[in-house]
C-alpha cells in the first residue's frame, strides 16, 4: 500500500477526456516520476492531488485519508507540499519572511490569531528557517527582496519553503523548466540529497529526461489521460510503447 493511492481517477473538461481511469500507487520514501507528452494530463492529475481540481470519478487516498473535497490548505496540513511550474513565492517579502510563513503554517495550523507576538521573537522558528536556507545555500540572501532574485533562486526558495514544513509528500511540477543546465544540475543534487537525508516521498512531473532518470525510482508514462506503463527507469528507457507515445506511431 503506497502513501499515495490513486484509483480509477477520471476527469472530463467539456468534451475533452483529460484523465481516464488513472491508477497509480506511489510508495513511501521513493521518487515517482510521471512523464508523458504535452497534453497527456500530467498537470491535471497533479491538480487532483492538491485539491485544485476534483476528479469526476475515482478516489485519491493520501496516507489512508481521502483528499477529495478538501481544500488546498487542508491538504497541505495533511502533509503534501507543492512546487509550481513557475515559482510561486511571496515576491513582496524578504527571503526570510518567505521562510517564516510556512514555519508558522506548520506550527500553528491554517489559522491562528497572533496579533501581539512579534515575528522577530520566534527564535525557534527562525532557527528552523535559517537552517533550511543554509541547506539550500541561500543564507546570504536572507534579507533580499524575493521578487528581485533570479529564477533559479526563486525555485530554490520555493523548494526550501516546502521542505521546511517537513512534508510527507513533495509534489514537483516541472521543477527545472526554463532553468540553465547548471541550475538544473544543482536542483538534481539538491533533490537527491533531500531524498537520502529525509523521510520524504517525491512525486515529480518532468519533461527533462536527464532529471527523470537521475532521480526516479519508478516512472509512470501517461499518454492521452491514461497510464501507458509503470516501471523502473531502466525498463522504461527501451520500452516500445513509450517510444510510440513520444514519437507517434512507428514509422
Amino acid at each position: 500500500m503506497g502513501i499515495l493511492e490513486v484509483k480509477d481517477v477520471g476527469k472530463r473538461f467539456g468534451g475533452l477526456q483529460a484523465l481516464g481511469d488513472v491508477n497509480l500507487s506511489v510508495n513511501e520514501r521513493t521518487c515517482h516520476a510521471i512523464i508523458g507528452p504535452n497534453g497527456a494530463g500530467k498537470s491535471t492529475l497533479l491538480n487532483c492531488f492538491v485539491g485544485k481540481l476534483i476528479p469526476d470519478t475515482g478516489s485519491v487516498m493520501f496516507d489512508g485519508q481521502s483528499v477529495l473535497g478538501r481544500t488546498p490548505y487542508e491538504i497541505n496540513q495533511l502533509g503534501i507540499s507543492r512546487v509550481f511550474q513557475t515559482p510561486e513565492i511571496f515576491g513582496d517579502l524578504t527571503v526570510m519572511e518567505n521562510m517564516m510563513i510556512p514555519c508558522f503554517a506548520k506550527r500553528d495550523g491554517a489559522f491562528r490569531l497572533q496579533g501581539i507576538r512579534s515575528v522577530a521573537g520566534e527564535k525557534e522558528l527562525r532557527d528552523q528557517a535559517e537552517a533550511m536556507l543554509d541547506e539550500v545555500n541561500m543564507l546570504d540572501k536572507r534579507d533580499m527582496h524575493a521578487a528581485s532574485m533570479s529564477r533559479g533562486d526563486k525555485r530554490r526558495l520555493e523548494m526550501a519553503m516546502c521542505l521546511v514544513q517537513n512534508p510527507k509528500l513533495l509534489l514537483l511540477d516541472e521543477p527545472t523548466a526554463g532553468m540553465a543546465r547548471a541550475d538544473t544540475n544543482n536542483t538534481i543534487d539538491l533533490l537527491k540529497e533531500i531524498k537520502e537525508t529525509r523521510d520524504i516521498t517525491i512525486a515529480i512531473i518532468e519533461h527533462d529526461m536527464h532529471v527523470v532518470f537521475s532521480l526516479a525510482d519508478r516512472i509512470t508514462v501517461l499518454a492521452q489521460g491514461t497510464p501507458l506503463v509503470e516501471d523502473t527507469p531502466d525498463n522504461i528507457k527501451g520500452h516500445p510503447k513509450v517510444r510510440e507515445a513520444y514519437l507517434g506511431e512507428a514509422h
Binding site: 492538491v50 481544500t71 488546498p72 490548505y73 497541505n76 496540513q77 507540499s81 507543492r82 509550481f84 510561486e88 513565492i89 511571496f90 515576491g91 513582496d92 517579502l93 519572511e97 517564516m100 510563513i101 510556512p102 508558522f104 503554517a105 506548520k106 495550523g109 491554517a110 489559522f111 515575528v119 519553503m161 514544513q165
Partner: peptide, 19 residues
C-alpha cells in the same frame, strides 16, 4: 506577516497550508 502574504500571493499561501 500573514496579511502581507495575502497581499503578495494568495495561491502560495493556500498551498502553504494557510486559510
Amino acid at each position: 506577516l500573514m496579511l502581507k502574504a495575502v497581499k503578495s500571493n494568495q495561491q502560495r499561501m493556500n498551498y502553504t497550508g494557510l486559510n
